[in-house]
Simulated assay, not measured.
Amino acid sequence: MMIGFFVNDIEREYENYTTTTLAHQAVSRGHRVCYITPSDFVLSPDDSLNVHGRFLPKRKYKSRLDFFETLKDDKACKIERVDMAGIDVLMLRNDPSIDAQNAPWAMDSGILFGREAARRGVIVLNDPDSLGRATNKLYFQSFPAEARAETLITKHASDIKAFAKDHGGNIILKPLQGSGGSGVFKVDPENQSNLNQMIEAIGRDGYIIAQAYVPAAKKGDIRLFMMNGAPLQIKGKFAALRRVAAKDDIRSNIHAGGKAEAVEVGDTELAVAELIRPKLVADGMFLVGVDIVGDKILEVNVFSPGNLESCSRLAGVDFSVPVLEAMERKVEIASQYKSAFDNRHLAIL
């Protein structure tokens, strides 16, 4: 099977990224892998869709580090133009918000060409039509209200101030678009004098999300992976970890200084997962990362959820294995039933 991994660019990939972990596992299982970036698609006059893929040498790799170093080596890798119809699975693993300012043309390229690839029989994960509706955090509002922290979205300072007053001055502010904890502020009674500056800082780039502060967030949030609409697990061990914010920082994102710790997934987290499961299934969201605090979800990352490698290390199992097994099963189903399922159904089967 041939798998294409769509990323923002090769330079921004790292050894422990989830994409690297999945690509290395794919190669270890005998599949051919190529990396694709926003500028690599070609729609030809004959309506064929091609791609200039970055292919790694077909050989055994001693480790994920060996695989990653080869990926970064321009001399070792080969750029090949291939018909997209020859790629079995296209996994969209880019973060559109990264390209929002410097390369806005690249933001939606994975979604746009992902739709074209799906039309030509490629299994595209996650479903590009649904990803098109999830390019900002407004998608979050489509999940059941009982699973979400109370949220206000506005550009008016008066609305935010009234919302803060209703919640005792304890709220979180963040931009409607963006990821990775960028532009996130915690408002409390002690720093309310800076509320105007916070609103101005976020509001320059668009709408503002004001979210009720969940006290359980002091202990950090839980990143839980869900696959095919269910919590990802191996023999009762869940692909999950607790992300604890660094001192003097409210953001628990690992790259923002947060610390990853092992965590037990209990009935509360499983109940939250069950609440959002129907929406993920309906949207063909194959692999997502859900951030949970108490009995509420704070984020649902449907584009490039990270920390799968950390979850594997903390649990002592390799969660990339069931992910690849699921992809292999989808390709087999597609070959047996031909056009019986559209991409959204295949994505979640």
Rank of each mutant, 00 (worst) to 15 (best):
M1H: 13
M1L: 09
M2R: 15
I3G: 08
F5Y: 06
V7R: 07
N8S: 10
R12N: 10
E13V: 07
E15H: 09
T19E: 06
T20V: 01
L22H: 07
L22K: 07
A26L: 03
S28V: 10
G30K: 09
Y35W: 03
T37G: 00
P38F: 03
P38N: 04
F41C: 00
V42R: 08
L43M: 06
L56M: 01
Y61R: 03
Y61G: 00
Y61E: 12
Y61C: 01
L65Q: 11
D66A: 05
K72T: 02
K72L: 02
K75C: 01
V82Q: 04
M84K: 04
A85F: 08
G86Q: 13
G86D: 15
D88I: 13
M91H: 09
P96E: 14
S97T: 14
A106E: 14
M107G: 12
S109K: 14
G110C: 02
R115P: 00
E116R: 14
R120T: 07
I123S: 05
R133N: 15
R133G: 15
R133V: 11
R133Q: 15
Y139C: 08
Q141F: 01
S142M: 14
A145L: 13
A145E: 15
E146R: 13
A147V: 13
E150L: 07
T151P: 11
H156V: 02
A157G: 04
D159T: 03
K161Y: 01
A164H: 02
H167K: 06
K174G: 12
P175K: 14
G178S: 13
S179A: 15
G180D: 11
G183K: 13
P189T: 07
E190W: 11
N194H: 13
Q197L: 07
Q197A: 09
M198V: 09
I199P: 03
E200R: 15
E200V: 11
Y207E: 15
V214F: 07
K219S: 12
D221A: 04
I222C: 01
F225R: 04
M226L: 00
M226C: 03
N228S: 06
G229L: 03
P231Y: 08
L232T: 10
Q233K: 14
A240M: 07
I250P: 07
R251G: 03
N253P: 09
H255C: 03
A256G: 10
G257E: 14
G258L: 05
A262S: 15
V265H: 05
D267Y: 00
L270G: 01
L275Y: 05
P278F: 03
K279A: 03
F286H: 13
G289A: 05
N301H: 11
G306H: 08
N307M: 13
G316K: 06
D318L: 05
A326C: 10
K330V: 15
K330T: 13
V331P: 12
I333S: 11
I333D: 09
S339V: 11
D342K: 06
A347D: 12
I348W: 00
I348G: 05
